[in-house]
Design a protein around this nucleic acid. Structure first.
Lengths: 197, 197
DNA sequence: TCCGTAATTGAGTGATCGTTCAAATAATTT
DNA sequence: AAATTATTTGAACGATCACTCAATTACGGA
């Protein structure tokens, strides 16, 4: 009964996410979203409530994609370190996307008094840290990572490396420069992981 | 001759910089600036041209302050590494300021099609890299840093560490967590600098 | 085929955006 | 004190902002 939906919710959120990712929350107008989603304001509001809610759903979608990519790379690769390397390079060298992390961008560009969005971003970054810990736990069991390694602390170091690399890569330096930084970052992580320090 | 200026330009830019730093370019309205600077729109436009130009001047002021702080900390400390540590901790633990770098934020939140602001930010980050190289050169001469060290590459690593730490610190994690990450980052840099790898 | 219902439309809301400029103000010079 | 010049003011501009809602459209069931 009733008219059937014209828009696939996931596809719509994907499009909105990409636009927000490029232009930021306050840098993206509802007019921009209308064009990007090919939806009229009434439809957008009927489906998502308001701009902030659409942004939140975009963040959820982003986290879902990123976490899934991380897990699949790590679990399908020969080792945790191999998978991490593939994951990081995919983040940095996929031309269509901005380099830097949407969640980090959210912490950067959302006004400090909008606690809702900031807390959400903080929480999701913390959740990613947990995901890293979970995957490293498996690598400890398999013997790749030393049992002496403080994996919670190392997960935080990995976060700093990834966020730093992605932010730095926004400068559009030559690929060789970024690749060298990736290799160094992976070495740093590997040294901590194998306990040779 | 003529009426004397009511506003000190440097003080005004300092205020604008702090507001932009907190709320971003598109997150800061001229209305916000009027309140913050205690100036009427006519005065702002007569003094700075437009919002974008005021932002550019804020970035210049930010870079000036940051570069000067870095140089003075490094040059007044016992060693390059000591000075770097003091500098980084000052960036992370000064409560009044946002943690993350204004230039990195600019790359993150300014729309990709505003090439003027993005290029400016990229250029200034590159200039900071040169400043790091210059200071490390002195440390090579003084014997603190190994002559075998690729200081240009290390300067980039330092940038990634600083940007990553500052962005991560936006999450408002406990100070002990951040301090631990700082210690680790400094260890990483020191290992590279002294050639023990 | 007509009705009930759900989804979509797009003109229109008041508020706020960045910006302008004629008028007012305060200093110096004549 | 009058004229000149530099600076500041704030009402007002058209454009755009996020958002609303009555009308329209497209479907399934009766």
């Amino acid at each position: 009964m009733g008219r059937q939906q014209r828009y696939d919710r996931t596809e719509t959120v994907e499009k909105a996410m990409n636009l927000f990712w490029r232009s930021g929350f306050s840098g993206t107008s509802m007019r921009d979203l209308e064009d990007c989603l090919d939806m009229r304001p009434g439809s957008i509001y009927a489906n998502f409530g308001n701009k902030e809610h659409l942004y939140i759903e975009s963040m959820d979608h982003y986290a879902d994609k990123t976490f899934t990519a991380f897990k699949s790379h790590v679990e399908n690769a020969e080792s945790f370190m191999d998978g991490l390397g593939i994951f990081i390079r995919q983040l940095l060298f996929t031309k269509d996307n901005p380099c830097s992390c949407l969640l980090a961008k959210t912490l950067a560009d959302i006004n400090p008094d909008n606690a809702a969005l900031r807390n959400k971003a903080s929480l999701m970054i913390a959740e990613f840290e947990d995901t890293i810990v979970t995957e490293m736990d498996k690598a400890v069991t398999s013997g790749e990572i030393s049992e002496n390694c403080d994996i919670r602390a190392l997960a935080r170091i990995i976060q700093v490396q990834i966020i730093g690399l992605r932010s730095y890569a926004e400068m559009q330096k030559p690929k060789a420069v970024i690749e060298k930084l990736v290799i160094d970052a992976l070495k740093i992580i590997n040294t901590k992981a194998t306990g040779k320090f």
